[in-house]
Design a protein around this nucleic acid. Structure first.
Lengths: 261, 261
DNA sequence: TTACCAGTGACACCCGGTGCCATACGGTAA
DNA sequence: TTACCGTATGGCACCGGGTGTCACTGGTAA
């Protein structure tokens, strides 16, 4: 799930064993690369050295990794398809934003699976611009998935002009990703200690409260709909309405909400 | 403002002329590169060809551009410092989110300044992964600026536990950037026709309404202040109040705001 | 004139990445 | 067992982006 993978799925005994072998080599190369990067630095380590350290030929390295950079992020490709699977297999009744949150959680788990490696990699990405860009690009791929998913799961039923739907989908996706980034980086800076996933869940709560106005708990309504919306969020009550809505209508909505609160 | 720039600011007649000359060469190279990219494709064009086409040596190319990619995005570095200047020189009374919006508008203007070039570049970035990543990384640099700015301009006065401040800053910054990205891409897909800046302003209205809850119209309160706040933001009016404020007080504030709007 | 300096051209070099071919390993059919 | 075949590998040549270095040029200040 990362390189040529010419044969689609040779699901025979031999095929499986060959795949396992292949996977082992890939892992060996990745660990060798990581070790060298950690000790010598990223740029100071050549592909030849990595290959030699892993006991393979230089050419073989590039058969397992598209580039030197990929050797340090070996799991993004797999994770990307896993995330897509999460989205594809989601219960249609689940709020799309929740689905997306479960998706990004999959990414976080990838990091949390090997804390030490992730922390070391974080150290490298901070000082090597190339790696920084690479990671940013990787995360952008997840975001793209989410944007498309949200856009495809807007409130199909409601009859409203969804001119701003794509915008809201993009904003929501970027918010989820931003939450992930924030929690992840904080955790990495702390040395990979603590329950990241719980922290991420809290971040989800925060952004859901933040986006709650426009992107409801269920489907996603495009703009603050023509009808004013009022929501109680924690200690605050928030009212949003179009200025062209009748003031009386707005006041009534808010009064109702306050009464319920 | 992009490469070596060893001499800080030789503000003499000769120095200025030399700088102008330098800038002209840089521009010539960039246009030559753009022309070749557009006709032959990005990867099929070598740096040697660009240099030859611009009438300079290969080495000179790399004195003006750090990489082949930079030749296609010659303005990001300058724009980045302009954005920083916008943030630095902002009126302290301006809502930080507005300041950030003005910042990203600066980026949009860079694209809008030469619509044809931007459209052509967009075509290239869509089909060349390298350029895609490059552009994503560029935008991420702006986002980073915004996150830091917002974080530094939280409501200093209020005494509240701002545990989630960094998260909210990051989410807000990413929302602004997402709005920019969305508007820009739509405009580019439409061939660079129409008033982008107006479209961006509308997008700002939408996200301000969306984020209005947590990131207030003025400073960024983690939660709402004791006194209810009401603000008119573009097409929408947003009211925020603590649930423990008296309902009558809340209603009065909102009524006032609606009257003013 | 002389001394200086920034930009330039030319050359050599490193290294990431690719195409190509020969080979070795392993399973399968005869 | 033997012949066949697909796959992973090793080795090699090659391309092209990016860097270090040095010599040269033209314009400027002293």
């Amino acid at each position: 799930m990362s390189q040529p993978v010419k044969s689609a799925a040779p699901d025979t005994a031999s095929g499986r064993r060959a795949a396992a072998q292949r996977h082992r080599v890939r892992r060996d190369i990745a660990t060798a690369a990581m070790r060298l990067f950690a000790t010598q630095g990223y740029e100071a380590t050549t592909v030849d050295e990595i290959a030699a350290s892993a006991g393979v030929a230089r050419r073989t390295f590039f058969r397992h990794f598209r580039s030197k950079e990929e050797a340090i992020f070996p799991d993004h490709d797999d994770t990307l398809v896993r995330v897509q699977e999460v989205l594809d297999s989601a219960d249609p009744r689940e709020p799309p934003l929740d689905t997306v949150c479960r998706g990004i959680t999959e990414v976080l788990r990838m990091y949390a699976y090997m804390p030490e490696v992730s922390v070391e990699r974080y150290r490298l990405t901070r000082e090597v611009p190339t790696l920084r860009e690479r990671e940013i690009a990787s995360v952008a791929r997840y975001e793209r998935l989410f944007t498309r998913y949200l856009l495809g799961h807007f409130d199909e039923g409601a009859q409203r002009d969804g001119d701003d739907d794509p915008l809201l989908a993009e904003v929501a996706a970027s918010a989820v990703v931003a939450a992930h980034n924030h929690v992840l980086r904080r955790w990495l800076r702390a040395g990979g200690k603590g329950d990241v996933e719980a922290q991420l869940d809290h971040a989800f709560d925060v952004i859901k409260a933040t986006l709650g106005t426009a992107i409801g708990p269920g489907r996603i309504p495009a703009r603050a709909a023509s009808a004013p919306s009022v929501s109680r969020q924690g200690e605050v009550v928030v009212a949003v309405a179009r200025t062209d809505a009748s003031p009386a209508e707005i006041m009534r909505s808010i009064e109702d909400a306050l009464r319920r609160a």
